[in-house]
Design a protein around this nucleic acid. Structure first.
Lengths: 224, 224
DNA sequence: AGGTGCCTCAAACGTATGTTTCAAACAGAC
DNA sequence: GTCTGTTTGAAACATACGTTTGAGGCACCT
């Protein structure tokens, strides 16, 4: 075997198991036995379980954020000073994700689920790690979003970004299960690319929705 | 003390801790010590930790699904045969949630987070429990959605419902953290009602977006 | 007073977890 | 071949978990 292919085997097994079962619910013994590796190897190579979790994210996120930066560079160059539209920005992100070299057939969806879990499970260390490690492309995406939706108030934009993130993370995170259901119910096959193609228009439309009206309950029952 | 106020103290503590930290990350010892109750009381009154989780959901969900049913009844009666609009349907759901009698100041948001966790954490027993216990109002909501969006193909509708579910579950599931961020960044206070008031227009707009176009990467770079 | 159910308590049980240890195996340099 | 630093191996460690136990308390009934 190549020099310490143990490390990669651990990362592969951990990535898949974390995505399937969450972080706390995945033990080191599950990981090492799936990876066919000795238990102590994890602590030897990574130091701790938390550090392993960080490494799983870093292996995907570091090349991805580089890809994303150049995609944004291209986009801004093509727009010559004018701010890119919302659709363009969302597509730049989506295509960067979809075009990432994929380790196996499950591809991007595993990682989408991991990102969803990172936000959902209250693993303080993970959020802190992600925020301080990948703040640059994140901030840039936020800036592009802001320039593409100047009509929104900061608060509206903030919440709608959360809604976008939620729709994306949730859908992608369970896309395997959802695809199966769709297959059984309607007999339709679906790829991650097609899901993305459906998701982006949904997100763009929601992002550009009319301003929220007052809640009907505060006045009368809603009509029409 | 009143007859077994222990049960309620356990439920209160469990509800809050589960919402804060997730199910696996919350131990019975945390719950019983927060509730100022003996450790064995959980297994005595509920039988197991999983059964306690179910009880936490049932305490909220059972009255809620009753409220929701009457809300749907009212809505359909008001529409006199015509199918309710998408906005009406979403508002009926939202208002039913918001109007639930709240046990404490944190109110509905704790429970929204629990529902999000239920979908996110891969606790098989929980999803099974929720699906077979509350399938009726769920199916009814789905039927209303279908009648409110006749222009969508079944596949489009299916995916967009997942997007809605994701935006809702994800946002609500981390709404405390998000509110804190918003508080610190922009100095704005936000109630769950206000989040819901922002969420519904976003969802409705996304649900009714124009049909998805082909993915730009399949042809040329996106312009305008 | 005595007895009966329901409940609480402290302690223990068995198991699973993350981590550590230390000897053995291995690779490459001399 | 021998030495050196790195990696693997089986076993143990300490801790935390969910659950069970059995003795005790308390209220209520006859």
């Amino acid at each position: 075997m190549a020099q310490s292919d143990t490390v990669d085997r651990i990362l592969d097994a951990a990535e898949e198991l974390f995505a399937d079962r969450g972080f706390s619910e995945t033990s080191l013994r599950m990981i090492t036995s799936k990876a066919k590796v000795n238990l102590a190897a994890v602590n030897y190579h990574f130091g701790s379980k938390n550090a392993l979790i960080h490494a799983v994210f870093a292996r995907f996120l570091t090349p991805f954020s580089a890809t994303l930066e150049t995609a944004f560079d291209d986009l801004e160059a093509r727009c010559e000073g004018q701010p890119p539209t919302l659709n363009q920005t969302l597509w730049a992100l989506t295509e960067s994700a979809v075009r990432m070299p994929q380790r196996n057939e499950k591809g991007i969806s595993i990682f989408m689920r991991l990102l969803g879990l990172a936000y959902t499970q209250s693993q303080g260390h993970l959020r802190k790690f992600l925020e301080q490690e990948y703040s640059q492309p994140f901030s840039r995406f936020m800036r592009l979003l802001k320039e593409a939706t100047p009509q929104l108030s900061a608060v509206d934009r903030y919440w709608r970004i959360q809604f976008m993130l939620g729709a994306t993370a949730f859908t992608m995170s369970s896309s395997d299960a959802l695809r199966d259901i769709l297959q059984n119910k309607l007999g339709v096959e679906t790829t991650v690319q097609e899901i993305a193609a459906r998701l982006v228009p949904f997100l763009a439309a929601g992002m550009q929705a009319e301003d929220a009206v007052l809640m009907p309950s505060l006045k009368e029952a809603p009509v029409a």
